[in-house]
Design a binder for these strands. Sequence first.
RNA 1: CGGGGUGUAGCGCAGCCCGGUUAGCGCGCGUCGUUCGGGACGACGAGGUCGGGAGUUCAAAUCUCCCCACCCCGACCA
Length: 489
Amino acid sequence: MSKGITPQSKDYASWYTDVVRQAELADYGPVKGTMVIRPYGFQLWDNIKESFDKMIKATGHVNAYFPLFIPKSFLAREAEHVEGFAKECAVVTHTRLKVDDDHGLVVDPESKLKEEIIVRPTSETVIWSMYKKWIQSYRDLPILINQWANVVRWEMRTRLFLRTSEFLWQEGHTAHATAEEAQKETLDILELYRQLAEDYMAIPVITGLKTEFEKFAGADKSYCIEAMMGDKRALQAGTSHNLGQNFSRAFDVTFQNKDNQEELVYATSWGVSTRLVGAVIMVHGDDKGLRLPPKIAPHQVVMVPIAQNENGHLKVREFISPVLDEMRKGGIRIYEDWSDNSPGFKFNEWEMKGVPLRLEVGPRDIESGQAVLVRRDTGEKIILEKNMITAQAPRLLEEIQKGLFEQALEFREKNTHEVSSYSNFRDTIKNKGGFIRCGWDGAQKTEMKIKEDTKATIRCILNNEDSSGMKCVYSGNPAKHVVIYGKAY
RNA sequence: CGGGGUGUAGCGCAGCCCGGUUAGCGCGCGUCGUUCGGGACGACGAGGUCGGGAGUUCAAAUCUCCCCACCCCGACCA
């Protein structure tokens, strides 16, 4: 058991907070609900970000930046959209402060804005106001823009990385000439999200469609990737929306097609946020702390010298430096911990921080021309001849990457249940938790009733799953869709 | 916004009932020395508007009142 980390089995929420803080991923900001992402946490986010940035650039997308401030009136243009976000917008009403003799620093009432400005909760509205200027002809399409930005959603109850008032994300906003093309874009991005989650973050995800109730405000259709956390709850890890013509209609964005006819533009938007960091923590973490997938880990290998004195340090350095240099040339990210802490302290520290591989080098190793590698995922100790390390380390990192994915997948499968009746459904949600895969009649009434009864929601409608012959778990009517139910974050 | 609680060193707390030395303890931090293969030890040391304001009193961390902040539990969300 790690010092200062509440065991998962005792209190999962405390475990999560302990890990985030002790591993120095993040800290609370001075304003309630805000978060400081510390360097170690930011490197993790940066690696995720870089991975995805390469993926979208390879598929023809480009980055741009739109302003943080949005005229209040923009939000109101799209009815569903305003409904979805109005309750959580930060509003700028004044532009300056002044020093008051009695009350100190106060808002200067003279500086009140004629039109209030909102801080973006998402950027559809500003972006489409600009697209109106940029799009005239089908020759201007498609526009495939992404931005990396911060957004603000004033949340009541917040949790580090999972739900904070301000968070970092990417938001892609594309404009297309046809509905088919927009739909293809929506699904292509969903596939990129699946790859990001599974191939880089080692998080198995279920892809599917959101119900009308759960979808993004302003979208025709929302697709998502959903993952199961270590406490068997569901986390929406990314969403890709087909916005249809909702925003082009709201902002009057039309183009002339090849037949010289005016048409409304088709839109998509899609995003993943720093919430992904929360997912990595909760999918892979254990009672010792983080377990990071090598592909996104800030340090893939940590070298811990074991030495009595200055001279001992020198010997370790002399012995292992050529090996480390070779490994670095091979593209491995290595951290050398020469700090004054004891080796035992360092072992625990770096395990808490989730470094996939530890390389121990001490006098006994130097004498016998070898070193010890320890896997974070399994705890296995591997003694290798010095000249084997460079070749073996990348192979071990790959194994760890694969192993973490497989463990998470196995966990999800073990906790995904089939049920025979609604009472069985309720019992399963209450006592076992996890996901339930079952039929749904497609009625919102059913969805709401189940939510009221059990707090479980439809995480997604499975694409391409045949529901013929299946019955709705609640109503007994023929099922329209196969869905995944679960309690969500 | 409704119910419950907490503010004392960087962090976690004791002291408060029953006012009275120089406000303590653990962790952490600094210097020095010994250590170092699973969270080392010793010596010395730094660090406080006791959340803020007013009141009672010879005397307030302690009693009274007001204010402020934060945390936990119930209706939204990536």
